[in-house]
Every structure is written in structure tokens, then in C-alpha cells.
Design a protein around this nucleic acid. Sequence first.
DNA 1: CCCTTGCATAGACAACCGTCGATGACTGGA
DNA 2: TCCAGTCATCGACGGTTGTCTATGCAAGGG
Lengths: 137, 137
Amino acid sequence: MHRDIDNCQCHGHTGCMAGPKTLPLLDPACCAPLVRAPLDAAAATSLARTLKALADPARLRLLSMVAAHEGGEACVCDLTEPLGLTQPTVSHHLKVLVDAGLLTRDKRGVWAYYALVPGALDAVAAVLTSQDVAVRI
Amino acid sequence: MHRDIDNCQCHGHTGCMAGPKTLPLLDPACCAPLVRAPLDAAAATSLARTLKALADPARLRLLSMVAAHEGGEACVCDLTEPLGLTQPTVSHHLKVLVDAGLLTRDKRGVWAYYALVPGALDAVAAVLTSQDVAVRI
DNA sequence: CCCTTGCATAGACAACCGTCGATGACTGGA
DNA sequence: TCCAGTCATCGACGGTTGTCTATGCAAGGG
């Protein structure tokens, strides 16, 4: 019943064997898909931290709004009004997403532009799914 | 800039055009991957509810322990001791996962057997990822 | 018919979370 | 130099959550 955590095959998703600092919150969970072997406490805590950042309606909408915005980036003033929340609340949610490694923040002049971290959401999805997937494009 | 929500292509993941009652919490988010178009409030709330059920170390470990257990099912007494939590707490977490549509509960005699809902985690992963994936096996 | 076993529920409590208004910091013009 | 605009931080408040102990309920064996 021993499962091959050691003999891990990474499927090329971001954050796996890609250096020391990429997606730190996801690394422990890397190569240990949820349904293949029991998670140890550390990996569970790490993955839960990332999922907790995602598990909020406002933050999910922020992610999708940033992704759908022209240029793949948006500043706070673009997001406040369509989201229907105050500017401090939007800033707070964006900070949570940045801290979780899901968004990047780029301050240019007076504006702060937020953008998706490429592959971050895919890495979360890869841990959740049991299917061995092939990227089509 | 109009994105094709109407002209939706389902990739065959569970809960999509598969009847009225399968995975109710995921249906609103179906066919609207996070990064393709802005989520409306209802879809965001629905997806957040499912992710909130996942965003806890104990529940993540429970999911993986149930999946890795022999026969793909486990009763509460199998999970309490390795998890290091009391029996009421384990029962509470299992109820949260059942209510989220991620686990099934089958009472046989004195024991309650929990098992993964097939495709439930894959459906969550499919919403999170932007990649058009092909199942290999 | 009792007694043990497995599980769910109820109630309580501390910790955490989402939201707000108020305020401060910084940038770029007039 | 002052002002307007953008954003982050602070402090506060109500609601939610994870955990526990205590208790109830059902099944099965003496």
C-alpha cells in the first residue's frame, strides 16, 4: 500500500522543481495530489491556506475581473465600483490574494496594477484533481 | 470584448448538462471558468461555498484519508485517531464535506461509511483552471 | 431487557474574518 | 507650494468558524 511520493512525476505545472521561491505556499502540496495518498499535517495546512484565500466571493470575483480586464491587469479603481465594496475592503482582499501567491502587484505612478500569477490557479487545480491531464494549448 | 458565456463549451466534467440535481453547488459556476469571464455575484458565492468546505487542513486530510482508505470508503472510527481530533469534531467536518457535495454518507449497521463523490473534486479543479484539458485515463 | 459501541447533535467558548469609516502616505500636476 | 487623486493601514464591530465536553440516539449482543 505504499504510494510513490518519492518517485514523484511532476506534470510540468508551475511551482514544481522550478527553483526555491516559486509559489511557496503550494510547494509542499506539490506532487501529492489529494486523492492519491493521505496528506500530512504540514501539506494540509499549506494547501488550506491557499484555498482559504480563494474561498471568498469577493476575492473570486476580483480574480476573474483582473483576468478579464484588458491587458490582464487592473488597478483598484477599476475594481471598486463593479464589485460594490469600498476601496479599503478591495485593497484588503487584493492583499490577501497577493500574499497567497495568486496575484502580483505592480505600482506604476499613482496606480497599483494587479495581475494573475501565471500558472498559480492551475497549480491549485492540479493538486485537487486526480486526473492525469495533458495541456491542449 | 464580449466573451462567450452563451456559446459555452462544456468539457464533459461532472455536473454540466447532466441533469437537474447533480452537484448543485457547482452548477452556477459551470461553464464559466474563473479566468475567462467575470464571475457574477451568484456564481462567486456558490463557488466560494464549495471552496470554503475545502479550505481547512482537517477536512483536506479527511478527504485524502477517505480516498486512500481501502475500498475508497472509511467510517468515523477509522479517521478519528490518525487525525488527532475528537470524534464530534470529525463528524462535524465530515458533515460539512457531505453538505458541500464532496463526500457521500452510507450508514450500514452501526457504522457510517464516507466516500468521495466521483468527479466532485475534478469539477472544482476544472473551474479553477484556464487550461483546456484532455483526460488521459 | 440492559449494556456496549458508533455516531450525531447541542451548547459554549475563543479565535478568526469581512466590512466599514477614518486617516496617513505618496504621486503628479497647477 | 499646495491640492487632488490613488492606495494602504488602522481600529472597531458583528458574524462566522473550529474545537471541545456533555448528551442523545440507534444498532446489536449478552
